[in-house]
Amino acid sequence: MAENSSAETPSTEPQARKVTYCGVCTLPPEYCEFGGTAKKCKEWLENEYPDMHERLYSEVIISHILILHRTAAVAATLSTLSIDAQKRAQKDSAKKEAKAAQQEKRAAEDKAAAKVLIKRVERNKRKYVTAVSGLEAHGLDLKKVAKEWGKKFATGSSVTKTASGSEEVVVQGDNSDEIYDWVADVGNVPEDNIELIEDKKKKGG
């Protein structure tokens, strides 16, 4: 180090500090993180100057571990980044996490508001079909449901496109009460979200 050299006693010994430069990016290794070859630089330093490697990257490892507790996937990509870059990445991943949480919350709210409509429709006199819409919002597979109901009620049951473009399960016959129970018990839809509609137009006919 040149610190101790003074103007009064010029020495004949070389006073210049010997500085190590990165064999990959040519910068002092503490600056490797700012180049585009950080990973290669780190490998080079680990091989050539293990002590310096340990000193420079130990800090990184500590925060690496901290991050591991947060999200393993993000941490895996961070091992070669600096504290600086990590802070930025942390901010980014925190943002992403917040966004995902927000989306989850919104989905939950949507789900909470999503109604399953069980509609008994009189087709002909005393002949009914039961049309059930809104199941997909509660994570139910319409085709599977239709198949199961067909078996359960020993009747025709299919997935049908509605006029609005969405899909509903249409079951032959008036099975609305049984369907209500199934949707609540098997489908795990809260009863507040299930609505039974009777097509009353022709009722009493």
Binding site: A2, S5, P10, S11, Q15
Partner: peptide
């Protein structure tokens, strides 16, 4: 000025 002692080295 502080480089004066080192100019012969540089």
């Amino acid at each position: 000025p502080l480089l004066a002692p080192h100019i012969d080295e540089i």
